[in-house]
Structures are given as C-alpha cells and as structure tokens.
Amino acid sequence: MSVATSYTEFAAREAHAVSPAYERLALAVSRDDEVLALLGTLPPTKRQPSLLFGVVRLLGGPVEDPAAFHDYTVANWPAIAAEMRSRATQTNEPGRCAVLLPVLAALPQPLALLEVGASAGLCLYPDRYAYRYGDHQRGSGEPVLECAATGMAPPTRLPDVVWRAGLDLNPLDVSDPADLAWLDALIWPEHTHRRARLRAAAAVAAAEPPVLMRGDLVDDLPALAAQVPAGATLVVFHTSVLYQVPAPRRAAFVEVVRGLPGHWIANEAPDVLRHEALPEPPGGAHHNVLALDGTPLAWTRGHGQALSWFG
C-alpha cells in the first residue's frame, strides 16, 4: 500500500465520524506531494498517520487546519522526522479494557495479567475501572469506560487480578511528565473524554505501579511469564500492537505465546493477525478482532468504544 493510500484509508476507516480534524488532515496529506515525499524518507513502519499527527501535536504544531499543518510540517521537518524515528505509537487507551473484560471475567480466577506492548500499562487494571454497557454498569472505580456491546450479555463481575506485568520495547512511566505528554499527544484532538480517562487511569497506575519490563515480545516473554505466582491463571494479551511487528516476528510470537501455560487474548486488525472464515464486520469502519487462544470471538473498535460479539 502506498503512503498516500494509507492516509486515505485512515481517513475513511479510522477517523471518519470519530475525529473530523484527523479525517481532514489525513485526506490533505494523501494529496500533498511535498509531505508525502518527506514521509517517504522514513522507514515504512514510521510513516503512519497516528505517529505523524501525534508528533506534530507533541511539538506544539497545528493539527486542526490542513494548510497550517502543511506549513509547519515542511518548516520543522528535521525535528519531526527525528521524533518519528525515535518514537512509536504507544496509544495506551484504557477504554480497550471494556472489550477485554467479557473474556477476562469468564476465565478461571484469579488472573495474572501480562500485556505485550504495554506502553505505560494502563490496560493492566481492568479490575480497578468501572464499565457501562448500555444500561448495565459494572464496578465503581474511575474512569468509567463506556462500550456499545451487541450479541452478548454484559459480564456480571470484574476479574480478580493478583499479578500484573507488561513488556514493551520502550515502557512509559505515567509519573514522568514527558511520558504522560506523549500519551496525551497520541489522543485525537476532539477526544476530551479520552484525555480525562487517561488522567484517571494514570492516577490508578501511579498509585500501584505495574511491573513494566523493557524487552522483546519473542525473546523476553517466556522469562516474564515464568514469574507468574502459583495458583493464578496466566493471561497474555495485546491490543493494536502487532501491526508494528514485522510478519516473521509476528509468527514467532504466536508460536511462543501458544507454548505458554494459561490463555492468550489478542485484539488486532484482521489483516495483521489472520483468522479463517470471519463474519462481515459491522459497517465500513476499522475493526479489530478479539480472539481467545486463537479463536475469534468479536469485532471491536480501536478505542474500546464498541464490541460486536459473534463467538
């Protein structure tokens, strides 16, 4: 897929009806030969819209007006390119816990959670947040995570988590203002509710910091998994992570994770982690596939805002 096409796809499938600013911006970049040429100087994994837009926001550049964005990007390209080369999209959206919860609550308790691509570890606290599925609320914590769920009854309980750890090439620390600023920059412009959610979830993580290990999802996963306390069900999970991993390493990861005791929850795009005979996704928006131990169960939206169960 060309860089221009990837921005057109992002506008149509991810930003449409979710972020008008990023929809406008992505369409403008897809037609902007000067910015496309600059993006072409970066490695293929560093050209994606969310990384470019997040870096420009982090540096204080404009993302609401495409013309101002163009001028800023061209004028400040060396600084933007340096940040894009050194960073990855580490969107740590606690709202994704709402689509993980139905699976987590149904597994043998208590749980030992191990997140791959954990960023700052905010998705390691599904037992501390509250959830609203339509008229059904579960839990009493903050933030309250809202999810439009179809095809299933909402879970009746929260999981019992006795151990939580994350693995990431570059773990982030919510108590570090610079790391928190990057997480904030990755939130789309209009999403003030997600900014509030980030702050509330960061307070939970800061009060009880998770074990976050700097490491590779293939080479370092078994050693971290071996630290799980006796009597707890290991759950290795990841959400919107594997698209950043080259295909051969993805295959190696799947082999490693399948060899571990416990369970494996994946929440990834269908072209990143393939499954046979998936039903049609609801509507034309971008959806991930929620799967348990390789069996697909539901379509999910990227920020946890919707879940359509078919398993």
Rank of each mutant, 00 (worst) to 15 (best):
G139H: 10
G166I: 08
R214P: 00
F69Y: 15
T233K: 05
S175R: 15
L273W: 12
R214E: 15
A251H: 07
V245D: 01
Q305I: 00
L42G: 06
V74C: 05
E93W: 06
T150F: 02
A17L: 14
D220A: 05
A203D: 13
V3H: 03
V254Y: 01
L113S: 04
A205D: 10
E142I: 01
Y7I: 14
F237M: 13
L172K: 10
H16P: 01
G294C: 09
R194E: 07
A17S: 15
L273Q: 10
L172M: 11
L39V: 12
P261R: 07
M213S: 11
H286S: 15
L198V: 10
E34T: 15
A306K: 00
P209V: 12
T73R: 05
L101A: 00
E93V: 12
V257E: 02
N170Q: 15
R138E: 00
P246C: 09
P210W: 11
G231S: 14
G302H: 14
I187A: 05
I80C: 07
C147I: 09
V55I: 10
A232W: 13
L212I: 08
A118V: 08
P177Q: 11
G134I: 08
M213F: 09
A181R: 14
T5P: 00
G60P: 11
A226K: 02
T89H: 05
F10C: 09
M213W: 10
K46G: 02
V204A: 07
V99L: 09
L172N: 01
M152V: 14
S6R: 14
V29P: 06
A105N: 03
R13L: 12
P78M: 07
S86V: 12
W299F: 08
L172F: 03
A181K: 08
R31K: 15
A11M: 07
A148M: 00
A203Y: 06
A185S: 00
A247F: 00
G141D: 04
R87H: 15
G215L: 02
D173W: 06
R87M: 13
E64W: 09
H70F: 07
L101E: 01
R195H: 09
A201P: 09
R214F: 04
Y129D: 02
T300A: 13
D216N: 11
G311T: 14
H191G: 03
H286Q: 14
N288M: 12
A82L: 04
A28C: 13
V56Q: 04
S6V: 04
A153W: 01
E115D: 11
H136I: 05
V228Q: 02
D271G: 08
N288R: 08
A106Q: 11
Y243E: 03
F53Q: 00
L292M: 10
L278F: 00
V241L: 14
V35K: 08
A75F: 06
P20K: 11
R138W: 00
A68D: 14
R258A: 15
Q244A: 15
G231K: 14
N76V: 02
T91C: 05
H303N: 12
L100C: 04
P44R: 08
V272L: 05
G117V: 02
